[in-house]
């Protein structure tokens, strides 16, 4: 997994609450058996005016000029500013894959849906929870000034605005550690292989019907 330590990037505001994972990456793209290539279809139904299907050449498609990601001032954005309950709905990990593939490194919102939040960490994407007031402020500042970029430092758990204002965020220690070093969860868990085996033997003895 790609590590995340510090990042500075242009911020794009997506001003809707309850953005669900099907809006992030619509279902027709879930038919892929690969992990990559979802970026061009990120927010597909909002980003393009025509209906998209997997395998299509997106350069021939008509962009929706009203959708924020298509506005030139946000070109190359790598920090997504979002509203409450971002990533709700389906558990599809294709959602963080699509965000990451598009070039996002971090999503900032007042709240995230649990499964999505969790999935981000497995893919080097940092979800940051800030209180609603701070998020409001970032929304209005990013709307007011073109090229508005945020500086994110995972080590010190802070987001810094162009004017130097700092917002601190909380993050679970284990997740922070894994993200800072790009650690693979499975490898870490397998360090506990003995504990798993001991537990399993005991579990099998008390609940043999769970084993066939």
């Amino acid at each position: 997994m790609r590590a995340f330590t510090q990042h500075k990037g242009v911020c794009v505001p997506l001003d809707r609450p309850n953005v669900d994972t099907d809006a992030i990456i619509p279902k027709q793209f879930l038919k892929s058996i690969k992990r990559s290539g979802f970026g061009v279809n990120l927010f597909d139904a909002w980003r393009y005016l025509d209906h998209g299907e997997p395998g299509q050449d997106v350069s021939t498609r008509q962009l929706n000029p009203d959708f924020v990601l298509n506005q030139s001032r946000y070109a190359g954005a790598s920090v997504l500013l979002a509203r409450d309950n971002f990533g709700c709905g389906s558990s599809r990990e294709h959602a963080p894959w699509a965000l990451e593939d598009y070039g996002f490194r971090s999503v900032i919102a007042p709240s995230f849906a649990d499964i999505f939040y969790n999935n981000c960490f497995k893919n080097g994407l940092l979800p940051i929870i800030l209180d609603a007031e701070s998020v409001d402020q970032l929304f209005s500042e990013s709307a007011d000034s073109e090229g508005y970029a945020l500086e994110i430092d995972l080590g010190s758990q802070s987001v810094t605005t162009p004017s130097g204002e700092k917002f601190d965020f909380a993050i679970d220690n284990f997740r922070k550690h894994c993200l800072l070093y790009g650690l693979d969860d499975i490898g870490l868990t397998l360090q506990h292989v003995d504990a798993i085996k001991i537990f399993e033997a005991k579990h099998r003895a008390t609940s043999p019907w769970l084993f066939s």
Partner: peptide, 14 residues
């Protein structure tokens, strides 16, 4: 769970 966790459970049962 997400797909990374599907893999995690397949590999570790945890």
């Amino acid at each position: 769970v997400g797909t990374s966790e599907v893999e995690h459970v397949l590999a570790t049962q945890c």
